[in-house]
Design a protein around this nucleic acid. Structure first.
Lengths: 170, 170
DNA sequence: CGAGAATTTGAAACATTATAACATTCTCTT
DNA sequence: AAGAGAATGTTATAATGTTTCAAATTCTCG
């Protein structure tokens, strides 16, 4: 019933990265923005997992590339990518993740599995709407919304013997 | 219609702090937790404004007290206070604020004014519910939820001539 | 009370995340 | 080719948070 499938379950991740990069190119072209080599490489690195990556992780990967980059290089690339809606920053993790809804108007909600570390971005209009209503109720004008939910994803077993998704009697 | 008034508009802030401290004492007693001198002082400092305070701000204030504290002292006090539901951490600001719903079961939502810096904590069940539904929809089990909205509070004038709360025709 | 256990705090060093400031190189336009 | 603006390189530093071990305090129970 949900429009949001789990995009990282048994998928062709190479294609997933390639798609993201192709989309990014198109989006930047449309916006007259320059997806330079560093920026593209950073985006690619971020897309190499569905786990958020810290800026210094990226820095290390660039170093492994032979690129002797300093922190500002990475942060600038990340700023650019965020500004163009290609990556999101997860505030509760100080980390960055590729946007799975790039190019579409959306208000993301992030489901962060504290077991496997994967993050799923949902577009949840009902959540945004509820937030807008609650804000308007007290006369607050929302500008930017952060919704980050940490918990257990359906791929991960529940810690002890607790039920996870309810008995599968259907 | 909202149960959440703006608690920081024209209120007696000394009483506000005193109440918070009294509540904290009661809550800790009930939970057999020790609200020691440092912890209480940190809580008091946090309550001295409705703006979130950074850990190092608190550290500086303790220093002004003549207390030569190191970072772990503050972080430990903050951990304790969070664990007992007396303060919240605002992830998008790396800062801490007193909980205005201490002692009650709630899922906070934070309205952060980027003009005056004040933060209003709302208890918004509709938002929590929407988040729970959206999570359940993809089989995710929420554990901890972060909802932080930055924007313009009703106390602050809109930047240019834009309407803020709509015409007051009622 | 008083010994031992547990909790809390002190203190020093260190790790991680992010930014400032300024020089240099690149890219696009004309 | 020249100039303007954008992007990157480089160095240093700021801001935030943690690890570790030692000392002090408080609690428990005989």
């Amino acid at each position: 019933m949900s429009a949001n499938a789990l995009p990282y379950r048994h998928h062709n991740h190479d294609a997933c990265i390639a798609d993201a990069l192709a989309d990014a190119k198109a989006i930047c072209q449309r916006q007259n923005a320059r997806l330079t080599a560093v920026r593209e490489r950073v985006l690619e690195l971020i897309w190499q997992s569905h786990r958020p990556l810290g800026a210094y992780d990226i820095l290390g990967m660039l170093a492994a590339d032979g690129h002797n980059a300093a922190p500002p290089t990475v942060y600038r690339a990340l700023d650019f990518l965020q500004q163009h809606g290609l990556v999101h920053r997860i505030a509760s993790l100080n980390a960055f993740i590729g946007c799975t809804h790039a190019g579409t108007r959306h208000q993301g909600m992030f489901l962060i599995c504290h077991s496997c570390g994967n993050v799923l971005e949902l577009s949840a209009p009902e959540v945004s709407d509820a937030i807008d209503v609650a804000s308007a109720d007290v006369g607050f004008q929302p500008d930017h919304v952060t919704v980050e939910v940490s918990g257990l994803c359906p791929e991960c077993p529940a810690p002890n013997g607790a039920l996870q998704n309810g008995p599968s009697h259907e």
